[in-house]
């Protein structure tokens, strides 16, 4: 928290994060900084520890070693709900919506969060209406059938948007998207990318774990490459694939 501050505000700092599962080292001494308003891409071959890293940051796993600071506060070892309350939202790789509930009712859960309650002055109000507002923001047409359909029957593209809407509804400052693009068609991507770009332009900070490099490189400000749990490269997208160690890690897998 010293000389880094003069560029923009540091929002997240990971220092020497390590985690192993019974002998398998999933994340090895990972360090990186993240500044407000940045869109950071995290890439790496399968099993390189990307999702473990997300779980470490969001408190679903406790690091064996290392430290995580969010807005200058040490949040290492906090419970997931405490971390969410200070403004870190995430999506899951395996999207499991509350399938029987209508789409907009899915947003009641984040809207019920103590964070949202505190931000809206300590009272909940009519959450249904607010939920529909957020759905509109991610491209659900207001009062259309998709808003009322059970979330379990939504097409894939809408499910991903619903996940985004949950992060918005939580009014998070840092949003971590775990493989949001996977399984989306080009058309669906074209409709979801602008939503993410809009988020960043509004000052939100975003971390994207991605396998779809081309789409990611188009929007990311910076990319971190993981391999066997370690950071092997950290730089701007146009240069990252030129690095020999990155090419080596991806050879054969991409």
């Amino acid at each position: 928290m010293t000389d880094q501050n003069n560029k923009t505000n540091l929002i997240l700092r990971a220092q020497n994060l390590s985690k192993s599962f019974g002998g398998v080292k999933a994340v090895v001494s990972v360090s990186f900084d993240l500044h407000e308003g940045e869109l950071l891409g995290v890439i790496g071959p399968n099993g390189s520890g990307k999702t473990t890293l997300v779980n470490l940051i969001t408190g679903f796993l406790k690091p064996d070693r290392g430290k995580i600071e969010y807005k200058g506060q040490d949040i290492t070892g906090w419970t997931p709900y405490r971390i969410a309350r200070i403004g870190i939202a995430r999506t899951f790789q395996m999207i499991r919506p509350f399938a029987e509930l209508p789409s907009f009712k899915n947003l009641i859960i984040p809207l019920y969060s103590p964070r949202v309650k505190a931000l809206s002055g300590g009272k909940y109000g009519d959450l249904d209406a607010v939920a529909k507002d957020y759905l509109e923001e991610v491209g659900f047409e207001r009062e259309s059938s998709v808003t009322y359909k059970p979330a379990g029957s939504l097409p894939h593209g809408y499910l991903k948007r619903l996940e985004l809407a949950k992060c918005l509804a939580l009014r998070a400052d840092l949003i971590i998207l775990d493989e949001l693009f996977s399984g989306l068609s080009i058309a669906e991507l074209a409709s979801i990318v602008p939503i993410i770009e809009k988020l960043v332009s509004e000052g939100k900070t975003v971390i994207m774990i991605e396998h779809r490099l081309r789409e990611l490189f188009r929007i990311a400000d910076r990319v971190v490459v993981l391999n066997y749990g370690s950071v092997i490269a950290d730089g701007i997208p146009s240069e990252i694939m030129e690095k020999p160690e990155v090419r080596k890690a991806y050879l054969g897998s991409e």
Binding site: Y81, R90, L101, I109
Partner: peptide, 24 residues
């Protein structure tokens, strides 16, 4: 109610509920 909805959501997907800041 919204409260009941959150309780039900805990059964369906507890991690998703936790990840929005609710102490399950």
């Amino acid at each position: 109610t919204d409260y009941g909805l959150v309780l039900k959501a805990i059964k369906d997907n507890d991690r998703a509920v936790m990840s929005v800041g609710i102490n399950i």
